[in-house]
Design a protein around this nucleic acid. Structure first.
Length: 805
DNA sequence: AGCACGCCGACT
DNA sequence: GTCGGCGTGCTC
């Protein structure tokens, strides 16, 4: 037996498989996808078995495998084949793809423990050395019996192998507090504590009054007693209390009620969609459907029923949702429909939990997988349907290597399994919608909302007018009045302040003029460092003007307000209202996100103010007003997708109101009330937005008319990086292709943030019609630049990048 | 990644 | 004459 092994070194020179001999005693333990340790040069490295054969083309003596790392496999034949395709398609190393497919536990350090389920039989098979322990170290067993024998014991369910993570620091822990003193000792301490030490006494009193509680989480204690860290520390110094770490174990299904939730009757439109797609499920056709349905049109119900149908036919189902919508509510909908056989994969799970879920999928215990981007690699067999909800979300594209897009992977797996792929969104990506336009995807429209409520009316507030009347206020009088009205009625308000508010651009406060690049149809960015207005797509730049180039007003200035400022303003205007602020700052800590949402949904706060994270998938019945404080921030980013993202964001956030029985209303404040994005968002008119935006993309040669690839050259030496960027451009430049409008090369440009961690970045953007025209050259570049890497110059290839910074 | 091989400059 | 710089190439 000979195996082909891919070694875990991400380098072009070893980006292929190497052949190894397998000792007889190992043959039944080794499977396709097994992780093994092999001698490589004078090293010992891990690798993956990607093929099992009896032949080799290697002219030399094959080395035998050193050891087998797992008696389970985490990759099946399909995934191995997929890794080959993706490595070539993404132009990255195969090992990087293979590693991306695996649960992260396998990358951590761990101990392998053999659990002995049947000591009697075990003893019979292994002999007298066994001392009746319930578990032993795997190494010990491996010294005594062969891998084949271990594999056999495992198969017979006499043993199982479990992993314990050694490096527990990567595990999430919480700090717990307990007291070692008994009640009398505590009382004693209390007496000795000054009456003025309120906080100290509060801690003592807490433990006196809560004798039954063994321990309490530190942060809970701090908030409940309103004591600071310093107080806790001094209590520790006085030896009243001690702290210890406890693992945070989060069962994803723990808080989910297991009530059955049977299928709902579908509306005619939904039924129609279901009927169409279920034919593809039944007939095993790898069709792609794009469901374009407004918020509340009941896409999820269609998904659930389709998944059910696949399940009925003995197939499995894969549902991808953006990480942010993987909330307990979402999970509950799936669980309550199917009860069992569901694996939920999300970032809140510890690595051991993720591994457990993975195991359940491999063993076939879970036939349904719900998860975020990386779940697209779930090792399901016999997939009957793949669904990607909110398909336009940029989180489906991985931003670092391997830079795959879940949609592309889904497309491949759909073909492999002859299973339909469903893409759902209220505002599909232009790429997907265009594919539907030309008939590559089947387009399904859902026009009606299940609750029959109309889409909320949208008010556009022209902030250029407001600024003239009222200075230095982010909130227009109209919006203030409407907020006050909801507060009076005890209804709730959602306010959006775009995340990327920090992006400074130049805006005329009088006429709303925003400086654009004359060559690129993209707004210029203010660079404080040299006081210049710059384009991030070409090298255009000009000095910061002192007056508006359009109306000569001196009221021109850089712009960008943060949520913090808005929260302050709100508290000034509405002192009686409680504002929940949700942005990257307030949700950085784990669990904080859900906590803030709970605070709002339970009605403890009246206004939810946040960045775009509040726009997604939240469903609050009592919200009757949505306000967008400044629709322009996202609109003027130097990115050709700025319009698309803004439209998606405005539409999504509008969908946050009118979810219940109460009618909703949307207010959008903008300095560009006539902008087409704002106008189409006002009427919730995706279709016309699509047509308009397509024209623009056509004129500027951007996707979906052209494919894009971003080459990033980075180095600690600015000169070397820029030199290589220019060299690469020269290599790729082809006047013939450019004349035929087949290939455009833009740049090199300095990166938006030109220096990160002392590395200088230069970008080359390729726009092309046919990837085959540049595939070989890019392969060459990848090869050649591998050597450059030793000189500290790195090249990254990113196909279809989502962001250009 | 790591190591060996190999070809040119400054030394006991 | 040799020691060692790191450019190049190989690892089943």
């Amino acid at each position: 037996m000979i195996v082909k092994v891919v070694i875990d070194i991400p380098a072009k020179q070893v980006n292929r498989s190497f052949d190894y001999a397998v000792p007889k005693d190992w043959e039944s333990a080794i499977k396709l996808g097994s992780r093994v340790q092999v001698p490589f040069g004078n090293m010992k490295r891990t690798g993956f078995v990607v093929d099992i054969t009896d032949e080799t083309e290697f002219n030399g003596k094959l080395k035998p495998i050193h050891s087998i790392m797992d008696y389970d496999v985490f990759l099946n034949e399909e995934l191995i084949e997929l890794s080959d395709y993706l490595a070539e398609y993404l132009q990255c190393f195969r090992i990087s793809v293979l590693q991306a497919m695996l649960p992260s536990l396998l990358k951590a350090k761990y101990d392998a423990i053999v659990q002995i389920h049947d000591p009697v039989q075990f003893s019979e098979k292994v002999g007298s050395w066994y001392q009746n322990e319930t578990s032993i170290d795997r190494k010990v067993l491996e010294e005594r019996i062969s891998p084949n024998a271990i594999s056999q014991l495992k198969k017979e369910n006499i043993i199982s192998i479990e992993y314990q993570v050694i490096n527990q620091t990567t595990q999430k822990t919480k700090t717990m507090i307990k007291t070692n003193l008994n009640k009398d000792q505590l009382m004693n301490a209390l007496e000795k504590t000054s009456q003025r030490s309120f906080k100290q006494r509060a801690i003592l009193e807490y433990f006196i009054n809560n004798q039954a509680i063994e321990s309490i989480e530190k942060s809970t204690l701090m908030t409940e007693l309103e004591v600071s860290n310093a107080t806790i520390n001094s209590a520790i110094d006085k030896e009243w209390i001690t702290t210890f770490k406890e693992m945070i174990y989060r069962d994803p299904l723990k808080d989910v009620s297991f009530q059955t939730n049977s299928s709902k009757t579908l509306l005619a439109e939904q039924q129609n969609a279901y009927d169409l797609i279920s034919q593809s499920v039944d007939n095993k056709q790898a069709d792609t459907y794009l469901i374009e349905g407004v918020t509340g049109s009941g896409k999820t119900e269609i998904y659930l029923q389709l998944m059910d149908r696949a399940l009925q036919q003995g197939k499995s189902a894969l549902l991808l949702v953006p990480e942010i919508s993987l909330t307990p509510q979402m999970v509950e909908r799936v669980v309550s429909r199917f009860q069992t056989g569901i694996a939920v994969l999300h970032s809140g799970l510890s690595i051991t939990e993720k591994y457990d879920e993975w195991q359940r999928i491999i063993k076939g215990e879970a036939k349904i997988v719900v998860g975020a981007r990386s779940s697209i690699f779930a090792p399901l067999e016999n997939i009957g349907i793949i669904i990607i909800d909110e398909e336009h979300e940029t989180t489906y594209k991985q931003s670092d290597n391997p830079r795959y897009h879940a949609r592309d992977v889904a497309r491949w797996r759909s073909e492999y399994h002859d299973a339909p792929l469903i893409l759902g969104s209220a505002t599909p990506s232009l790429e997907s919608r265009a594919r539907a336009q030309v008939g590559n995807y089947h387009l399904i429209h859902l026009e009606n909302r299940v609750n029959q409520m109309p889409m909320p009316p949208v008010d556009i507030i022209d902030m250029t007018q407001v600024e003239l009347r009222e200075t230095a206020n982010e909130l227009s009088p109209e919006l203030i009045e409407k907020i006050q009205d909801r507060l009076d009625k005890k209804e709730q308000v959602v306010l959006l302040q775009n995340r990327r508010g920090y992006a400074s651009y130049l805006l005329c406060r009088e006429c709303g003029f925003i400086m654009q690049c004359p060559r690129c149809d993209i707004s210029l960015t203010y660079h404080k460092f040299d006081n210049q207005m710059k384009c991030h797509y070409c090298d255009y730049h000009e000095p910061l003007p002192t007056q508006c180039p359009s109306c000569q007003s001196p009221h021109i200035r850089t712009h960008g307000i943060g949520t913090q400022k808005v929260a302050e303003t709100l508290e000034e205007i509405f002192p009686e209202a409680k504002v929940t602020r949700m942005d990257n700052d307030t949700t950085r800590r784990k669990g904080q996100h859900q906590k803030l949402l709970d605070e709002f949904s339970s009605g403890q706060s009246n206004i939810l103010l946040g960045t775009q994270m509040i726009a997604k998938g939240l469903d609050f019945e009592n919200v009757t007003l949505v306000g967008v404080i400044n629709a322009d921030t996202a609109l003027n980013l130097p990115d050709f997708r700025a319009s698309e993202r803004t439209f998606q964001l405005l539409t999504q956030v509008s969908g946050r109101t009118g979810r219940g029985r109460l009618a909703g209303e949307v207010v959008i404040q903008t300095y560009n009330p006539e902008h087409y994005v704002i106008q189409f968002a006002k009427t919730h008119d995706y279709e016309n937005f699509f047509r308009f935006e397509m024209k623009r993309r056509h004129l500027t040669n951007y996707p979906p008319y052209y494919f894009t690839t971003l080459l990033t050259v980075s180095s600690k030496h600015q000169g070397r990086a820029s030199q290589l960027a220019y060299d690469l451009k020269a290599q790729l430049y082809n006047p013939e292709l450019e004349r035929k409008e087949q290939l455009y090369i833009i740049g090199p440009n300095r990166n938006n943030i030109s220096k990160i961690n002392n590395y200088y970045y230069f970008n080359l953007l390729l726009k092309y019609k046919d990837k085959t025209t540049i595939q070989r050259q890019l392969d060459d570049i990848l090869n050649n630049t591998q050597q450059k890497a030793t000189q500290g110059v790195y090249v990254n290839i990113n196909h279809e990048p989502q962001y250009f910074s």
